[in-house]
Amino acid sequence: MEGLLRGPLLMTAYRMVFISPTSASFDTSEGRGTRSGNAALHGMTSVNDASIAYVAAQLFFSLSSKATFTKNKDNGAIEFYTSIRAFFMDPDFKVDVEELLQWWNEQIFPNVIVVDNAAGMNHHLV
């Protein structure tokens, strides 16, 4: 499990998709964008399994030799997405998944406080 779904390329891709392309860049010479990223636009304050699987599948496809993304079996990205989602849903990996999601949230949303109350988990921006 060590390092699973924690690679720097996946992290960079996630930031590009959900935070903003400039947040994933190490080159600050061009400045920062002023538009809100997808996470802010949609009120996203935590990382979830579907968002990780989505970005991993997009990254898988972008690194493949396929010219177009199709939903056929030859793609591989859809099967990859499905396998990642199956991992997250497997009760045998519950503790590993909780640790992984905690790690992701610390990386992507470090300024969010998680409050565990009777109504369930709530995420609040600091």
Rank of each mutant, 00 (worst) to 15 (best):
G3K: 00
G3T: 04
L5C: 02
R6H: 03
G7T: 03
G7A: 00
M11L: 10
M11A: 14
T12W: 05
T12N: 11
A13Q: 04
A13S: 05
Y14H: 12
Y14L: 01
M16P: 02
M16V: 14
M16T: 09
V17L: 00
V17H: 00
V17Y: 01
F18T: 02
F18K: 00
F18P: 03
S20L: 02
T22Q: 03
T22Y: 14
A24M: 03
A24V: 15
F26P: 09
E30L: 12
G31E: 02
G33T: 13
T34R: 12
T34A: 08
R35T: 14
G37F: 07
N38P: 01
N38L: 15
A39I: 04
A40G: 05
H42M: 11
H42L: 13
G43Y: 09
M44N: 09
T45S: 12
T45W: 12
S46N: 13
S46I: 10
S46C: 12
V47N: 10
V47G: 12
V47T: 14
S51Y: 13
Y54V: 12
V55H: 00
V55L: 01
V55A: 03
Q58E: 00
L59G: 05
S62L: 07
S62Y: 04
L63C: 11
K66P: 00
K66N: 10
A67L: 15
A67I: 15
T68V: 13
T68D: 12
F69Q: 11
F69L: 14
T70I: 09
N72Q: 10
N72M: 08
K73W: 13
D74S: 14
D74H: 09
D74K: 11
D74Y: 14
A77N: 02
A77F: 01
A77M: 02
F80D: 02
Y81C: 15
Y81D: 13
S83W: 09
I84C: 02
I84F: 08
R85P: 05
R85C: 03
A86R: 09
F87Y: 12
F87C: 11
F88E: 02
F88H: 12
M89Q: 03
P91W: 04
P91K: 07
D92K: 12
D92L: 10
F93V: 08
K94P: 06
D96R: 04
E99R: 13
W103F: 09
W103M: 05
W104P: 07
N105I: 08
E106Y: 13
E106A: 11
Q107V: 11
F109P: 07
F109L: 00
P110T: 07
P110V: 03
N111A: 07
N111Q: 07
V112P: 06
V112H: 05
I113M: 07
V114F: 15
V114P: 13
V115H: 01
N117H: 12
A118V: 11
G120H: 09
G120C: 02
M121F: 10
M121R: 06
M121H: 12
H123G: 05
H124A: 05
L125T: 13
V126C: 06
